Computed example of a mutant assay.
Amino acid sequence: MGLTINILNPIQVPENIPVKVYNIPPAPEKGMFLDIPVDVGPQYEGQRVRRENMFVEFGGPKLKHKFELVRIRANPEEVDDGKVIIVGEDINELKRGGTYPLAIILEVYGGKLDLNAEGVIERRIHEFCNYIQGFMHLNQRYDIWLRVADKSYSKGLTSFKYVGTVLYRLFKSAFPIIEKLQITFITNEEIVGKLFEQALKVYEARDARILDR
């Protein structure tokens, strides 16, 4: 049985699409990000990676299918804490200079969390991604645009497992209410396209709840 991804309705990932699963290791004692190949910190917020200086980019105005989404799960068994899942090609498997679809899905469990926290957590993805040296993140929801700088790729930022590790540790530090967190990156066009319409419905329902308060 292959991987199933569930936003509103479960989607089975075909066996011919590569899936990689990583367990996030404990943070090094002498520094939370010493095991990340590039520097990490708020000093990189606002960074821009020009096209001529990028290794690859994801999303942006050229592509329809791209999004980032947080889903709060009611059952702790639905979230495999500390897992980073990559569906499709990883950064180092993509062609230099290319533009690719991307979905980033954070599945979260916390006994005191409710659905209204989804948007709050989701908005921090932008901030925390930009903590990574040479990893540009613009916009939110279905307008995201990310670039990996050539220099950062050369230093070893070759996999989403590093991005997932940074996000996991920052979210767990900033939101102690989060008990479990699982992060999925999807670069496969077929899967991102199928999930895109479901993500739009989640955004619409979330906005409607806010207006009805």
Rank of each mutant, 00 (worst) to 15 (best):
28 P>T: 01
31 G>L: 12
31 G>N: 08
32 M>Q: 14
34 L>C: 07
34 L>K: 15
36 I>D: 01
36 I>N: 01
40 V>P: 02
47 Q>T: 00
56 V>Q: 13
57 E>Q: 15
58 F>C: 13
59 G>L: 08
59 G>R: 04
59 G>A: 06
62 K>H: 07
63 L>W: 05
64 K>Q: 12
64 K>N: 11
65 H>A: 15
66 K>T: 04
66 K>N: 10
69 L>C: 12
72 I>P: 06
73 R>T: 05
74 A>V: 03
74 A>M: 09
75 N>V: 03
83 K>A: 12
84 V>A: 06
85 I>E: 10
87 V>P: 02
93 E>I: 09
93 E>P: 09
94 L>K: 09
96 R>P: 07
97 G>I: 13
99 T>M: 13
99 T>G: 10
103 A>G: 09
105 I>D: 01
106 L>G: 02
109 Y>L: 13
110 G>E: 13
111 G>W: 09
112 K>P: 00
113 L>K: 08
116 N>V: 11
121 I>S: 04
123 R>L: 12
128 F>H: 02
130 N>Q: 13
131 Y>K: 02
134 G>S: 07
136 M>N: 04
137 H>I: 08
140 Q>G: 03
141 R>W: 07
143 D>S: 09
143 D>G: 03
143 D>R: 13
145 W>N: 09
145 W>H: 11
147 R>V: 03
151 K>D: 07
154 S>M: 13
155 K>A: 12
155 K>D: 09
155 K>W: 11
159 S>H: 03
160 F>C: 00
162 Y>L: 14
165 T>Q: 08
165 T>N: 04
165 T>K: 03
167 L>F: 05
